[in-house]
Design a protein around this nucleic acid. Sequence first.
DNA 1: ATCATTGCAAAAGCTTTGCATAAGA
DNA 2: TCTTATGCAAAGCTTTTGCAATGAT
Lengths: 154, 154
Amino acid sequence: MQTELEIFREFIRSKGLRQTPEREIILAEICRKREHFDVDELFLRLRGQDKKISKASIYRTLPLLVECGLIREVNFVDGHWHYEQIYGQPHHCHLRCLSCGAMVEFEEPRLAAVEAELSRKHGYQIIKHVLEVQGYCPHCHQKSSARDEEAKHV
Amino acid sequence: MQTELEIFREFIRSKGLRQTPEREIILAEICRKREHFDVDELFLRLRGQDKKISKASIYRTLPLLVECGLIREVNFVDGHWHYEQIYGQPHHCHLRCLSCGAMVEFEEPRLAAVEAELSRKHGYQIIKHVLEVQGYCPHCHQKSSARDEEAKHV
DNA sequence: ATCATTGCAAAAGCTTTGCATAAGA
DNA sequence: TCTTATGCAAAGCTTTTGCAATGAT
């Protein structure tokens, strides 16, 4: 299997773009910690390593990484996009805590059937799906139950 | 079944807020055309009827309508949120064309099972899910195929 | 009479963009 | 050498907010 860097270089070349240290440092940082991230976090992580890469470059690079399938937009929460590295990972969905933002990843094979049916029924060429289940994680749920209990006795 | 207006008034009263014409005009317009909308569209629709309601009031009212379950955020596309009226409608998911934005609504009963499993497995209190399948509608798919075909012969 | 709500304009926050400089190819 | 990419700062957009005036209770 090709490495992310190989994929990215091939993509950059194929589009007639240029291989730059900034682009590769951004990709390397995303791959180093295979976690969800947003632009600001990524910027601060790079800056913390004395890699002075501007936010403008990050904003210009992320769409390239999305286009070549190395990362994807996960969701738009708190006024900005969150991304995740996806290359080499099985496709997964998210379970998000509406209170603390904790995310559980899970696979859901039944969605392949859903896609196939939609394609047949509506004539769409299906590209992908995004499923996010939302609720309260055990920790936050407990906290809010405790709060409710307290409210009763006021 | 209660009307949307009744639900809203009850909600407003229960929170100690005030029943204002602006809030009710916004709700009425959303219910009049039971379609997807965004803030700007709604603002222009109201303005077209000589109902001069400020965007600030719209931005302040929508979260109330979400909170009392009359509307919901559908997705964040083109830099802003899209909403839809949901009260009295069966829960549904969306199939969106990545090119023209066309939306097909569909019901997917299998997701109830997915929610139940997640709740059991991870201890989350599940509130809701958002599933969006993305692809190209027959019309846009055809156009892009034609374009590709053309490119071959250049 | 209170105090929440409105409209306006300003501010805030994320993202994009123009431009001069730097640097791949 | 030619052209793309970078960094900075400014601009663009959507959304939020402060404030004086208005209006609901």
